[in-house]
């Protein structure tokens, strides 16, 4: 059984057909790329997957159950986490507190024991802190744990966002342009990191990216979206030579 099945999903904003009859299938453990020109509807697909937007038609099946109509936090609880194209960290919280937020879902202590500072509170908070620190350690952000996340350099903010998404303990991770604004060296490091987290956390990853070297380098399969429609699907080599894809990116009458 596929981990995630997007079946004939479509969404309209007013008169605009942003995504139309989109079909994507992810098997467990895969690392899949979603590419397409600007405005093709890639982020909209992510927004539908995470419950931020409600698809106007079609169905999304995650681990055998439909997740359409669930609230974003329900979907996160089910095991899908994401990052954002334009980094959306909790800017006035420290790095450590940013990573603590997703562990809230699994907190065992209640409001009352928090307010009364009962032993359950100390135990629960201790647990959250330890897990959050472990997570930061993995991403090499331990020494920045007390800094406000707004003060981190750009590349580290991107890493922190991935760390925060992983803290939600997902089985499917959605990365929205993780390499945007990074230089080639940073992009290379990111590639390594993506491979590594997939194996370490036993994840399935769907990533949107404009940086072709990254997409072609890490992805096992690629979907191409143009004007809201999937126009091609295949391995990086197949995609590179697919005439429809070339047309979408470069326009017609280009000799390959």
């Amino acid at each position: 059984m596929a981990l995630l099945e997007i079946k004939n999903v479509g969404i309209s904003f007013g008169g605009l057909r942003a995504v139309d009859k989109c079909n994507i299938v992810l098997e467990k453990g895969e690392l899949i790329g979603l590419i397409g020109p600007n405005g093709a509807g890639k982020t909209t697909v992510f927004n539908m997957l995470t419950g931020v937007y409600l698809p106007t038609e079609g169905d999304i099946i995650f681990e055998g159950k439909s997740i359409v109509g669930l609230k974003p936090y329900n979907i996160t609880e089910r095991g899908i986490a994401r990052t954002f194209q334009n980094i959306r960290l909790f800017k006035d919280l420290t790095v450590l507190d940013n990573v603590k937020i997703p562990y809230h879902m699994h907190a065992k202590h209640g409001v009352i024991s928090s307010v009364l500072r009962l032993p359950a509170f100390f135990k629960g908070e201790q647990e959250i802190t330890e897990k959050a620190l472990e997570c930061l350690e993995v991403f090499g952000l331990s020494d920045k744990k007390d800094e406000l996340s707004r003060n981190l350099p750009y590349g580290q903010q991107r890493r922190l966002e991935i760390a925060r998404a992983l803290a939600a303990k997902p089985r499917l991770l959605l990365l929205d342009e993780p390499a945007a604004g990074m230089n080639p060296q940073e992009t290379h490091d990111l590639m390594e990191l993506i491979y590594w987290i997939r194996d370490k956390f036993d994840l399935t990853i769907l990533l949107i990216e404009h940086d072709m070297s990254l997409v072609m380098g890490v992805c096992e399969r690629i979907y191409v979206l143009d004007y809201g429609k999937i126009i091609a699907e295949g391995t990086p080599d197949e995609i590179k030579t697919n005439p429809k894809v070339i047309e979408a990116y470069l326009g017609k009458e280009v000799h390959v």
Binding site: V52, P72, D92, K100, P102, H104, I128
Partner: peptide, 23 residues
């Protein structure tokens, strides 16, 4: 406490908070 942090995360960015599992 983790509840207070949840509230602050809603203040900081409601959509990001929701996708991090905060109702």
């Amino acid at each position: 406490s983790t509840y207070g942090r949840a509230c602050i995360s809603v203040r900081e960015d409601e959509i990001a908070a929701e996708t991090m599992g905060i109702n």
